[in-house]
Design a protein around this nucleic acid. Structure first.
Lengths: 150, 150
DNA sequence: CTACTTGCAAATGCTTTGCAGGAGA
DNA sequence: TCTCCTGCAAAGCATTTGCAAGTAG
């Protein structure tokens, strides 16, 4: 999933980003980053709490907020209103999300290059007249995941 | 903006949707619907509070929740995490959103028919392998609006 | 040493809910 | 007259913050 050859490279880059805002890369933050890096979908606070029980809630919130501020994480909001986090796209392949409106689950899907060329062209089409300067885009598909269709 | 010839048609349809869930179309709910219908972009709770000061917060929340449950409204989450509401797409033209990450503003943009055909084809491409049943999609463009680019 | 981190508990702030009086049909 | 609606105040709940002890460099 990562565009880094090794986990060490990932950590090194995260550390650089944190240093830019005078933050240290401590064990707790490392644990959060590793958890997110090992997941194939965005995690909510409770996901994180369950999988790193030694980290108190308030610290987890602070880690997420600091890492987000440093540009390491991306915060997304699904159909339910729990914030979910994933590594920023600098660390991952660019991808889109399938949001299950039944269970709230978020599924990552990686588009093909030609797919993305088309999206980029279309984004331009939408923004040009508005004088809007696009920095990124998100194509969310809302529906029901395979396990919620019985 | 509406696909209805008159505001009366809009209200009539809303009333039907509410009746389906044994709810009445009262003055407060009407005011919320009219406000959303007159806006060219999604409104947050505080927008609504400011523009309909006679409606108490708790009632506004209840109206939004009931109207949402009836299928009249669509709830969206922008880059800041304030919920915003707009009329469901049955009442509006299908459209996408430009999200300004500087000021949080949400701008509606209406795509062309050929644009949407392409999006629909691409959505299929993303979901088919996952066994995911798509019901709708949202293409959000993140960036900076014209007034936030100085 | 000096500055950043962390854990706990308390506080915040948005949102929801209980309840009693009011209104629609 | 039965059921739904509304306003107020109180409660809930995810998230944030103050503070003091801990740790990195």
């Amino acid at each position: 999933m990562q565009t880094f050859d090794s986990v060490e490279d990932l950590h090194e880059f995260v550390e650089v980003l944190l240093r830019r805002i005078d933050q240290r890369y401590t064990a707790g933050r490392r644990a959060v980053v590793e958890l997110l890096a090992s997941s194939d979908h965005p995690l909510s606070i409770s996901d994180i709490e369950i999988r790193t029980p030694t980290i108190p809630r308030s610290s987890a919130y602070r880690h997420l907020s600091d890492l987000h501020r440093a540009g390491v994480l991306r915060r997304i909001t699904a159909s339910d209103e729990f914030a979910r986090f994933e590594l920023a796209e600098d660390f991952l392949h660019h991808h889109h999300h399938l949001l299950c409106s039944s269970c709230g689950r978020v599924i990552d899907v990686t588009p093909t290059a030609s797919f993305e060329r088309t999206v980029a062209r279309m984004v331009h089409e939408l923004t040009d007249e508005q004088g809007f300067l696009a920095t990124s885009h998100a194509l969310d598909v809302i529906g029901h995941c395979a396990s919620c269709q019985n």
